[in-house]
Computed example of a mutant assay.
Amino acid sequence: MPPRRLTRRSATSSFLPSLNATYNFNDRSLLRLAASQTVNRPEFREIANYSYYDFTNNANIKGNNKLRTAKIYNADLRYEFYPSKSELLSVGVFYKHFTGAIEQVTNSTNGSTLDLGFLNAASAYDVGVEVEARKGLVELTENPFLQHISFVLNASFIKSRVSLASGDDTSVDNNRPLQGQSPYVVNTGIFYQDDDRRWQVSAQYNVIGPRILFASSNKQNFSLFELPRHVIDLAVTKGFGPHLDVRVGIQDLLNQYTRQYYDSDRSGGISSADRGAFGRFRRGQYSTAGLTYKF
């Protein structure tokens, strides 16, 4: 069998302007404005015109040598307030417009196999709000233990929509979110740090909203959603003497199920009417223990 000939892609140049401006109201608060144009170029596996098997999802994946570079127009407005050197309260709004957004899609036309590929959407957008906060208790209490505790929060709430080309066979799913984009992301944590006694303890929590794992590419298949799962990570570090640190940790303490469902009613989300389960499995906990010796 003769070797497969790869299609040579012509070189492209991109103009990527950006603007960053800051206005300081005083020493503790400021306003940031940012605007930029960026690109998302296809990866080799996305444009390579051959099939390979994905053992994680039990799927056949084939690249698309007609993929175009996606253009992204970004705008961000953010207010930041610093009550102290170690504390922060930030609220921002952002908008992203995609031209030719690259999405991973399912090309399957029957239930026996899962065939995946890549396509350019005509356009898409993200619009959302982001809140970030860091707060310590040192100024709120005289208790020596509580003074070493601090909290961190980062949360984003996003709305995204995709517009497909007028000639696409996917018009039935033309009012869905962008593939891979969650409507919300929440990260929070509580931290205890005592430098004198060399204790560091942390508990962190993460959850992301339901997102499209693979988007529908024709009227014979459905978009595949991944549902939220709650993740908690714990870590403890204790120092002994001037050189030795002992650290133990547990990642994904809850070990909840990863749940994947087909959007069988094409509603742009998963409801009680969607009964087409694709996958349900646990990723497993990950525990670590280690010693660090500093010379």
Rank of each mutant, 00 (worst) to 15 (best):
A124K: 01
V105P: 03
F281M: 13
Q181A: 15
L19N: 09
Y50M: 02
V93Q: 04
N143S: 14
T69Y: 07
E132S: 07
S86I: 03
L153S: 11
F145Q: 01
S217I: 01
G128R: 06
S287Y: 14
L114R: 10
Y262E: 04
A203I: 11
F214I: 02
G100P: 04
N255L: 07
R176Y: 08
D169N: 09
T188C: 11
D126L: 13
S14A: 15
Y293S: 10
F98M: 08
L119H: 13
T7A: 08
E103H: 10
G167E: 15
D169G: 15
V39G: 03
Y261P: 04
Q200L: 03
F25W: 00
Y262L: 10
Q104F: 03
A121I: 03
R41Y: 09
A277T: 12
T69E: 14
D194H: 11
K85W: 12
S217F: 04
Y262M: 04
V246A: 12
A11H: 14
Q260C: 07
P242M: 10
D195T: 12
I47V: 03
D126P: 05
F55M: 05
Y73I: 12
S29N: 01
Y205R: 08
H230P: 03
F225E: 13
R8F: 05
S182Q: 11
L244G: 03
N206V: 11
Y52D: 05
R32W: 00
N57L: 11
A70Q: 06
T109R: 12
A48N: 04
G100F: 08
R78C: 02
A75V: 07
F94M: 02
R45M: 04
A70E: 13
T22K: 07
S36E: 06
E103L: 04
A133F: 00
G128T: 03
